[in-house]
Amino acid sequence: MTNYDNDKKVYHTEDTSRKSPMGWIIGGVALLALGAAVIYLTDVDLTQTAELPEVSVEGGQMPAIDVDVADVDLGSEEVTVSVPTIDITPPQEGEEADDLADNIDVDVDVDADLDVEMEPEQN
């Protein structure tokens, strides 16, 4: 006698991890058809126009507000500032224009009593 239960061969296995989107597609089409039927089969008619109620407003009072702000005192002070003078010697005949920068003298005499903090230059 032959035992057929042990001699079974599997020629095809079904992969159950992947699911077909066909159910979603059919469900979506059914919902669209249902929505179209509801819109197409519904008839809305205006049987009476609307009217707003009459409203009367009397009296009233705006709220009282007390606001305290900071006092700011502005002042002015007259300061004399020296404007620098610039002496430029135009180039002589036959002299290049690039050499013109060598002939510029700037004299600045600053003697103002101002509270200014300067940061030192960083090279």
Rank of each mutant, 00 (worst) to 15 (best):
N3G: 04
N3W: 00
N3F: 03
D5R: 11
D5Q: 15
D5N: 14
K8P: 09
H12K: 11
T16A: 06
R18N: 12
K19T: 13
S20K: 09
P21Q: 03
M22I: 15
M22G: 06
I25S: 04
I25W: 06
I25Q: 07
I26H: 07
G27M: 05
A30N: 00
G35M: 00
G35W: 04
I39H: 09
I39P: 09
Y40Q: 05
L41Q: 09
L41G: 14
L46A: 05
L46S: 04
E51Q: 15
L52S: 06
V55F: 08
S56C: 08
V57A: 13
V57L: 15
E58S: 01
A64N: 07
V67L: 07
V69L: 11
D73Y: 06
G75V: 00
V81H: 13
S82D: 15
V83C: 01
V83R: 04
P84N: 02
I86P: 03
I88V: 14
I88R: 12
T89M: 05
P91R: 05
Q92C: 07
G94V: 03
A97M: 14
A97F: 15
A97N: 12
D98V: 10
D99P: 00
L100S: 12
N103V: 01
N103Q: 14
D109Y: 02
A112G: 07
A112Q: 10
L114R: 08
L114Y: 03
D115L: 01
V116M: 08
M118C: 04
E121T: 12
Q122M: 12
N123F: 06
